[in-house]
Design a binder for these strands. Structure first.
Lengths: 203, 203
DNA sequence: TTGAAACGGAACGTACCCGTATCGGATCTA
DNA sequence: TAGATCCGATACGGGTACGTTCCGTTTCAA
């Protein structure tokens, strides 16, 4: 994160840093990281695409690695847990969100790029898993746990395993397919119903 | 692929190309591609690790891109479809193979690296999907179809969807976890049984 | 034995990139 | 207004990489 340019008590003298520059740099860095990878992107391209000078970037981040680390974690809270009262509807809503994210938003493409970059950059991998993946898994988890609490799902489930079974196929499709989101969305019902048979409580 | 140095009828004059060099170049290229990515790897490093001169590489492949394309497709037939006569045992054997591949062999790490590189290199993505992913999906498909033919599985299944549900969670775990294969292997039974409930024929 | 082509090694030209430094101008506080 | 800091633009030094070219040497067929 760019260091706060001022303390809350008394502002530093001189021209304050442009918040607009903060945003455009992070956005450009994320785009280029996704498109070209860690080694493939360059600070010069980031500066050009963000419409700022290179010094403006190095005034905020000490190195390329620090910038990318921040950019990768800059996703706003894009995923929200539906709470309809029925686990099937919750899952359906969640799956639709994931399908949408995986194709249209940068976050899906970022996951694909990170899958590779995590091999050679453990520090980046650690932060990404904690900040982005951990946060998303917690949301998916919520839906499963609520279903168990309501008695809709078996109470002996391994929640982590169910999360994997719910999220894994969607991300796998997003990684290897050039499929339109509508195509994957059409399979959502069949997918969830098949999975539900295995995890629902005995009726 | 390195062009055949000779026709079958009459060999070209001069020293023939070293098959050993072919192998060591492809192996080094694959290793470094997985570890450092497309832009991160260098032909110089490939040559050094393979123990050959740079000219020896450029005598066989016209460019870095052509070399990587060949290297990525150089996996031998690592996955084989078990045929035990029971779909559950077939799936169990397959899952164990996938878990093993995803962690120990280069092919699992290559999939992770390719997930990112496919974003910016459509040509490489096309070849990889056809040659590697297509081949593996066909093997998984075989097991599903055999189970349907034997009446063990419902006959109205979307085979592609079942393949995604079987493979997706395993690859997802391999991508984001630093988990030992044994850990994932321990979940194989629970995973398959949960999935089977949803796809098995009514008893 | 001779010629042809491959071999490993090294150098080259061109291009790019990281991180730093410097410039004149713009924008803030006091 | 005065001083401080930020701004975009530009240049620099050191390093790396692609793809080519040239070496002297090695390995093959005729």
């Amino acid at each position: 994160m760019p260091e706060a340019a001022v303390s809350h008590e008394s502002r530093a003298p001189g021209r304050p840093r442009s918040l607009e520059a903060d945003r455009s740099i992070l956005s450009a860095a994320l785009d280029l990281f996704i498109e070209d990878g860690y080694q493939g992107m360059s600070i010069e391209h980031v500066a050009a695409q963000a419409g700022v000078g290179k010094a403006t970037i190095y005034r905020r981040w000490p190195s390329k690695e620090a910038l990318i680390t921040d950019a990768v974690c800059s996703f706003s809270e894009e995923l929200t847990a539906p709470d309809t009262g029925a686990v099937r509807d919750d899952m359906l809503g969640l799956v639709r969100q994931i399908v949408e994210l995986a194709s249209s938003s940068p976050s899906g493409r970022c996951f694909a790029r990170m899958a590779g970059e995590m091999i050679s950059n453990p520090e980046l991998a650690k932060v990404y898993k904690e900040k982005v993946i951990g946060h998303r898994r917690a949301i998916v988890r919520q839906i499963i746990v609520r279903g168990m609490d309501r008695g809709e799902l078996r109470d002996d489930l391994d929640v982590g395993l169910v999360v994997d079974m719910l999220v894994g196929p969607l991300l796998y499709r997003a990684l290897i397919k050039r499929a339109a989101p509508s195509e994957t969305a059409g399979m959502a019902s069949a997918f969830i119903d098949t999975l539900l048979v295995g995890i629902a409580a005995q009726s």
